[in-house]
Simulated scan of single mutants.
Amino acid sequence: ARLAGLVEVHGDSARPGWRLRAWDRDDSAVLRGWVALFDAWSLALPEPEAHEPAAVAEAVSAMPQVLSFLQLSAGPVPVEQLLDLLQQRVTELRTERCEVSYEPGTEPPVEAAAEPTGTPDAPPASLAPLLDWALEALASVGALTCDAGQATLTPLGSWAVWVKLEQICVAAQSPAGNIEQSAEDMLRGCAQLRPNAARAEYRAWLAARTVGGAVSELIDAARGEDALLRGLAFEALRVVGAPAEPDVRAVVDEPTLRPYALLWLAEHDGLDPEDAHEVLTREEATWLWVDTAAAVADHGEAPMLVRHLESAVQPTVPRLLDEVRAVGHPRTVQVLVALAAAHPDPALAKAVRRAAFQVHTGG
Rank of each mutant, 00 (worst) to 15 (best):
V324G: 01
T332H: 02
L321P: 05
L348Y: 04
P344Y: 12
D345H: 08
L339S: 11
H329D: 14
A342L: 03
A338Y: 04
H329N: 14
D322V: 10
A340H: 14
V317Y: 01
A342R: 11
H329C: 15
A342E: 05
P318C: 10
P318K: 09
L336M: 12
R331H: 09
Q334W: 09
A342V: 06
A355Y: 02
A347H: 07
P346I: 11
Q334E: 13
V327I: 10
R325E: 06
R331S: 03
P330C: 03
T316P: 00
V317H: 00
L321V: 03
V317C: 01
H343N: 11
V337T: 11
P330S: 13
A341D: 05
L321S: 06
E323F: 12
D345T: 12
V337H: 11
L348R: 05
P344Q: 15
L336A: 06
R331P: 00
T332D: 00
V335R: 01
R319P: 02
A349H: 12
A355R: 01
L320K: 01
L339A: 12
R325C: 05
R354W: 06
L348C: 11
A347K: 12
T316L: 07
V337R: 10
P318I: 07
A338S: 09
L348M: 08
T332P: 01
R325F: 07
T316G: 00
V324P: 12
L321A: 09
K350Q: 02
E323H: 05
V324W: 00
R354C: 03
V335L: 04
A356S: 08
D322T: 09
V352H: 12
A338D: 08
R319G: 08
F357P: 01
R325P: 06
D345K: 05
A338N: 07
V324K: 01
P318H: 03
V337M: 09
P318R: 15
A349T: 14
D322C: 09
A356T: 10
A356H: 11
R325A: 09
P318Y: 06
H329S: 12
R325L: 13
E323P: 03
A356V: 09
H343R: 08
L336Q: 06
A342F: 08
R331W: 04
L348I: 11
A326Q: 11
A340P: 15
V333H: 00
T316Q: 04
A351R: 04
R354Q: 03
Q334S: 10
H329A: 05
A342W: 11
A351M: 08
H343K: 05
R354P: 13
T332I: 02
F357K: 08
A349N: 13
G328Q: 01
V324Y: 00
A349K: 14
A341C: 06
L339D: 14
R325W: 07
R331N: 06
P346N: 03
F357M: 14
Q334H: 08
